[in-house]
């Protein structure tokens, strides 16, 4: 009996490529280290996707993240979607953020990250909220380290399956491995950027958004 004809050995890269082609679903949600350049129409771009996304910013440097999120919420309501604002440290100031009230926004505040993750899961399962803002900008590094990574993957899958967007706000240097899209708001802003040159006629500058450095190696990977 002649010996079975064996195929020539393929390179490791070729084998990986073949596996990716054969099982594309297995790699669809794999974490991508590279980050995206934010176009001027970032709000529309952000809302175009679903699943878990990350926005990193140093909230103590007045970077404008809150303003961005307000615009996201406004755009969502314009599209007829509801917004859930999960606030583990209860830092939202509704009087300045929503001076006229916000019927489309459900604000769940306080009780720490663990309860906020639980609320995120309930709200994702509910399916009535198009955007879930998980405001963890002011959570400390130590608390971020305590959040188990599988919790984010679980939420990512839930959100992707239901076509909803879960946007997690993190301090800079924290990398959510489960997030399929990541942005960073670099730098700090001063009074000129916030209130304009003169007090009588404040003219805030557009929120500066830059490409994130993509340095996951230097950043701290928490999920």
């Amino acid at each position: 009996m002649p010996p079975a004809k064996s195929s020539p050995p393929e390179s490791f890269a070729a084998a990986c490529a073949r596996v990716r082609r054969t099982f594309p679903g297995a790699f669809a949600e794999s974490p991508r280290v590279e980050t995206e350049k934010i176009a001027p129409g970032w709000v529309g771009e952000c809302l175009a996707g679903s699943g878990l996304a990350q926005l990193a910013a140093d909230a103590l440097g007045s970077p404008g993240a809150l303003e961005l999120w307000r615009r996201l919420a406004a755009e969502c309501q314009r599209r007829g979607e509801r917004v859930a604002w999960l606030d583990p440290v209860a830092c939202l100031d509704p009087r300045s953020a929503f001076p006229e009230g916000a019927e489309a926004v459900l604000w769940v505040r306080g009780r720490g990250w663990e309860k906020a993750l639980e609320a995120a899961e309930w709200i994702l399962r509910d399916g009535n909220f198009g955007l879930i803002c998980w405001d963890g900008f002011l959570l400390g590094r130590a608390e971020w380290r305590r959040i188990p990574a599988p919790r984010w993957y679980r939420l990512q899958r839930l959100a992707a399956r239901r076509g909803l967007l879960l946007l997690a706000g993190t301090p800079p240097g924290v990398v959510l491995g489960a997030a399929s899209r990541r942005w960073e708001l670099p730098g700090r802003r001063g009074m000129d950027a916030l209130f304009g040159a003169g007090e009588e006629a404040p003219a805030p500058e557009p929120v500066p958004l830059d490409r994130a450095d993509g340095g996951a190696g230097s950043a701290e990977r928490v999920g």
């Binding site: 909230a59 404008g64 809150l66 303003e67 307000r70 615009r71 919420a73 406004a74 755009e75 309501q77 314009r78 599209r79 007829g80 509801r82 209860a90 830092c91 939202l92 100031d93 300045s96 953020a97 929503f98 001076p99 006229e100 009230g101 916000a102 019927e103 489309a104 926004v105 900008f137 002011l138 916030l194 209130f195 404040p202 003219a203 805030p204 557009p206 929120v207």
Partner: peptide, 24 residues
């Protein structure tokens, strides 16, 4: 909710960013 953009959050959002506050 009322029809989109005519009332509520979208209707009250100013054209230029407004200073928001994060409270401790």
């Amino acid at each position: 909710l009322p029809a989109g953009g005519e009332a509520g959050l979208a209707g009250t959002l100013p054209e230029r960013p407004r200073e928001g506050l994060r409270r401790f």
